[in-house]
Write a protein that binds this DNA or RNA. Structure first.
Lengths: 219, 219, 219, 219
DNA sequence: TATGAATGAGGTTTCATTCAT
DNA sequence: CATGAATGAAACCTCATTCAT
């Protein structure tokens, strides 16, 4: 695990080197936690050397912060791709919930990275100016959909958007965050396509029934 | 005698020593993660010495497994105190959800310990025979309540109990598991008594509206 | 230079281990400066391992501070052995100057350590409570001798003791502190017994002629 | 053009670049010692880049040697400005001593650089042909003054010039070389104008009383 | 000539764990 | 049982130096 030279496939491509390091680091931090991740191991799985990690990110903490930032930035970017136009409020809210569920379950390393950060009380997030000023489009979308639903009389009025987002997030994330213990203790699969599809539907139903004025009892 | 740093109150009390170590260890693992927790630090915060940690728990991993076991055992014990007799299905389900919410939010270190274990893919849990055979009374209670509700015609039929438990857990735990990042990014308090009370109500409402055949639109 | 096990000749002799480390460290710091000294090298020349250095002294800086403290403590102790009773003021002052000269020239590593500390602006000394409260017996002795001389009418009155000590120190130390450059540039020996004896006499003469009311022109 | 961080004032001025690097390097070596000084830091404080350091000075050691050479060269140059004509031997010797004192105390980084070199046993000085053949005019001046004093009967005969120079240097330099530790331990100021003036006088008195045949008891 | 990227060797420190008394 | 001493492996990080453009 010592510093062995790598084929300099990325020679003089700073952005590429940075990205490559971040990808590997995100995975390692997500898999082993902050302290559990090893700089040596990260370097070894990289196209470059350990020295470059310190060159670009100063230290382990800087690397972790950068990984967090990248994760949030990616999420924001993906959220932008969500298109709810042409859908009625209920369908739009379902779509939004499913989208969130799919994103979180499709990017478990992202969920895990956030969780690791929570274990460390968000101290790294506090250090990142970048993350602080991320404009969270998902909230805007949710607000639009909800307001439309209320205006059209299909949603209950008076609900808090942040609160709603929290509910959606909780339902979407738990499946990833507690997969190992929950599936083991209750002996249920949580990562098969079928399980994911079922849970995704439950999550959406739960959100909709919470928001709709008159939920269809069958849904 | 007066110069000894630590009160030797636990001398000749093996069970007390064990418990003391476990309490400290749980907190440290919960606060810093598995790798982040330091055996030296744990020992220092203990009424006893490092030697005893290795004596009772073999190694760091054994200590972590024991801490997990203790956490689950405590939870089971606490669940037993939940008394739903005399309540109608809806009220009972609300009570059960609130109870879960309160427990998780009242024992953040427990939630965090479980999360740490999930980051490590449940590998320690796999090693514990004890945890595997914990009969989870909460599931029994939930099943009883749900069945009663279905029988009485107030709950929708056909729901999966484990799934319902997952929803309840997700809503109860998120408030702890993502407190640091969520509260920081969305600039909302999540640990004040008011915030907890509000969120607790939302969680219960969400569960009830999901289960009830004809939810009262105002709830 | 990696951590190889040493014959545990000093097993379980904490004071011995500490002293052994300090001796080696003092020499290394004095020879290569603070940054130039290598913990690995120090450890290698020790009867114990690198790990023990950190166990006893926390880090490199702690080791340096401890080395400084030990140097000052040793000096103080040696100073105590100086006995001026029975000597007239002039002889006593000469003896005191010669003693200082001999000590500094006999312990070049001590002089160098102090010099290294001065290069670092005394920042480590500032951290040591121990050194701050060293009662400097040499000053007391000097004051006694000087007062006696004044009283007896052989010394000029009105001189400052600290100032006098500074002169003595300057004359005693230069021979060590600037030995390398001075001897090379002026092509003179400064470390042979003859050179030392001559310079020692000059130092004492210089001090005496500065203090005496009527210096014997031949001295 | 306006976006470049550093004013390209030195562009196309090799001698200026060299001088600029040497100034910065001298300060850094003097402040942190040879090993403690950082090439990166030196480069950063320079008007040019790290590349140029290696281009002009080969490596860190070459840079240090060059800094030493520059320091000695500057000193020699400054010494030339000392004009003792028209002064009697005693006054001339006083003036010479004061001049030396002022120079050393006015250029602490020079004193420190020499001290750093002494810590490294003069090994860099040994590598410099330039320094070896510096004709040290101060010695010539001192010899002239002394010889005149002896001829005129005011100075004691038989003193060694190099020895005398050593005494002068010791008294002049100690105030810089041991400022940090001495002032801290004896709680005296050593860098205020008053302290410097007093010490300067003491140094001169000391030298004079050592050399004069019949020192005025009041001086 | 000038700049940021890259390098590898080696530096300091920390960790879980075991030993001696 | 209890305590401080000891251990070695491996962790994180820094340095002087060189390369590519």
């Amino acid at each position: 695990m010592t510093t062995t030279a790598k084929p300099a496939t990325r020679a003089q491509d700073p952005e590429g080197v940075r990205r490559n390091i971040l990808e590997v680091a995100s995975r390692e931090f997500a898999e082993h936690g902050y302290s559990g991740a090893r700089v040596d191991e990260i370097a070894a799985k990289t196209d470059t050397s350990k020295r470059m990690i310190y060159y670009y990110f100063k230290d382990k903490e800087g690397l972790f912060v950068a990984a967090l930032e990248a994760a949030y930035a990616t999420m924001r970017q993906v959220e932008r791709e969500l298109n709810l136009t042409g859908l009625g409020p209920a369908d739009a809210l379902r779509r939004l919930t499913e989208f969130t569920f799919d994103y979180q379950n499709g990017h478990p390393w992202f969920v895990r990275l956030i969780i690791v950060e929570n274990i460390h009380n968000g101290e790294h997030l506090a250090k990142s100016a970048k993350i602080q000023k991320l404009n969270l489009s998902i909230i805007e979308m949710l607000r639009d959909v909800y307001d439309r639903g209320v205006r059209e009389g299909v949603f209950r009025a008076g609900l808090d958007i942040i609160d709603l987002h929290m509910t959606i997030s909780a339902l979407a994330i738990f499946n990833v965050s507690h997969r190992a213990t929950f599936s083991r203790i209750f002996r249920v699969a949580m990562d098969t396509p079928e399980a994911l599809a079922r849970r995704r539907a439950v999550a959406a139903d739960t959100v909709l029934r919470y928001v709709l004025r008159e939920p269809d009892p069958s849904a």
